[in-house]
Simulated scan of single mutants.
Amino acid sequence: MEPTNSQTQALYRLCYRLTNAIYPGWQYKSIELIRIDERTGNLYVLAGNNLEFEIKRTGGYEP
């Protein structure tokens, strides 16, 4: 299963924000894992300090 175009764009925005490229005052967060759930088609992102994000097929994401 492939991510949708909306998911790919949301993933890029999320990774950009997590890696401190947009907000220099924020602490850098490492990205540990990115995985697609074959059952739902949602992307899951695990980042430093136990941050978890789910990117839905529409491109919306939430912690």
Rank of each mutant, 00 (worst) to 15 (best):
T40R: 08
N20T: 12
I22T: 11
I55M: 06
A21T: 05
M1T: 02
I22L: 06
E54G: 06
T19V: 06
E38R: 13
E52H: 12
Y61Q: 00
R39I: 10
L51W: 05
Y44I: 15
L33A: 14
E2P: 14
L11P: 03
D37R: 02
R57N: 13
L43A: 13
Y28Q: 07
R39G: 06
P3N: 08
D37E: 08
E52D: 10
P63R: 12
T40E: 01
T19F: 01
K29F: 07
R17W: 15
R17P: 00
Y28N: 05
Q27W: 13
Y44G: 14
N50T: 15
N50G: 15
Y16M: 04
P24F: 15
T19E: 01
E62D: 13
N42D: 09
F53M: 07
Y23L: 07
P24E: 06
T4G: 08
S30V: 09
N20R: 12
L33D: 04
T19Y: 01
Q9N: 00
Q7R: 04
I34H: 08
I31V: 12
G25S: 11
N42I: 10
E62W: 15
Y16Q: 03
L14G: 07
R57D: 05
G41Q: 06
G60E: 15
L14K: 10
C15Y: 13
T40C: 11
W26G: 11
R35I: 12
Y16C: 10
W26L: 12
P24C: 03
E38I: 02
T4P: 01
R35P: 01
P63D: 02
P24V: 02
W26A: 10
Q7S: 01
V45G: 09
G25K: 14
V45E: 03
V45Q: 01
T19Q: 00
S6G: 04
Y44D: 06
S30F: 09
R17T: 11
Y23D: 11
L46Q: 11
C15S: 11
A10I: 03
I34Y: 05
M1S: 07
T8W: 06
